[in-house]
Computed example of a mutant assay.
Amino acid sequence: MTSGPRGGQRMPLPPARQADDVGSPPGQAGPEPAAAAGSQQTATVGPRRARAAGAKPRQRDAFFDNAKFMAIVLVAMGHAWEPLRDDSRLASALYITVYSFHMPAFIVISGYFSRSFDMRPDRLRRLITGIGVPYVIFEIAYTFFKRWADDDPTFDFSLLDPWYLTWFLIALFVWRMTTPLWQVIRWPIPVSLLIAALAAVSPDIGDDLDMQRVLQFLPFFVVGLNLKRHHFDMVRGIRARKIAIPVFAGALLVAYWAAPRMNAAWFYRRDSAQELAAPWWDGVMMTGALFCCSMVLTACFFAWVPKRRMFFTVLGAGTLYGYLLHGFLAKGSRFWDWYDHDWVHEPLGELAVTVIAATVVTVLCTSPVQRMFRFAMEPKMTWAFRKDPAPSGGGKRG
């Protein structure tokens, strides 16, 4: 992957919390699909208060936790394969295949759980503490890490230029703030695709807030906003699972053929067509082609996500932790030349790297890690917000 203007690879990765992906505490029971970012009042009360009120605490949906965990494992594997691509055509093909759908899958889920975001004060607070604050904290942390690990004292901190994995947080912040707009216009998905296509042919957009990625990935968020639970159930039938196998096999074969012929940067959606040395009309065509390809493979991915609780289901609530924390190791492996050993580029070495990446990100999603880093991921920050006004009105109504 090519380096960004601040010297780092900008690779995507995942939503981490079910209630509204990265806008609510990972350990909190997720609300019903229609109650995303902030959810309804009953979803915000603690288990004791819920029992006292006679209401059962809401349960997380195992399907979405399973999907997020499986996707974060694929993300970590993709990052591990990136340095192997020059020496292994198979690694390059796997990398392209994974990158064609893993980020769109995360973004679709993010949009689905953002459907009720409506600028209500409690939802804005959760947006700030669950997305905005972690963005600032990890942008600072990554800056100092690069200065130290890469011996680059000139690397500057910038909130306007997300480095490496933090781009997804600022993108989700922007997408969620625009949610009310997409819920009132008549043709949200075509409009979002038009915006993505215009971004893909606009090299003057620049790098502030990674707006190219924000705009080019936007259609997947809008698709998620327009989905219902039965849409996910539709792709989980026996027939869909059978179809998914040859589709994935075909995608891998196409990726194997395209690996030495195609610029994989198209899948990052970080640059315009002109910046990729292509004519502007390629940006329009690639926007539509990649959207269709990504949606098909995303549907095939969902087809094989288990619906029932699995041994790894609980880890789906901590994918934001795995996402942001594994970035230090992914980058450190390049800074510290871990891939310079010849054995790493042999088949057994590539397999070992894959297993290590999957194991590391799994550990980083566990409860002990969540407790250790909760101060950065889920700061309460009650001191920073005004208290909600007391409800007005008199006594009981007859």
Rank of each mutant, 00 (worst) to 15 (best):
P188K: 00
Y142P: 00
L181E: 04
K228C: 09
R147H: 13
W148V: 15
G206P: 02
L215H: 05
D152A: 15
L160F: 12
D210N: 08
G206H: 09
R213F: 04
P203F: 13
L198F: 10
I185Q: 06
P153S: 15
L194N: 01
L165E: 06
A149S: 12
D152R: 15
D233V: 10
L194P: 00
R213E: 01
S202A: 14
D208N: 06
M177S: 07
L198G: 11
W163A: 12
R229M: 09
L227D: 05
M211D: 04
L209H: 06
P203G: 12
D150N: 15
L159F: 12
T143N: 10
I189C: 06
L159P: 01
R186I: 08
M177Y: 07
L209T: 05
P162F: 07
V191D: 01
S192G: 02
F173C: 11
I185H: 05
W167T: 07
I205R: 10
W182D: 00
W163N: 05
S202G: 02
R236Q: 14
A196T: 04
D152G: 08
R213C: 06
T178Y: 05
S158G: 11
P180I: 01
W187P: 00
L227Q: 07
P190E: 08
V223H: 01
K146F: 15
L218Y: 10
V222E: 06
D152N: 15
L198D: 05
K228L: 06
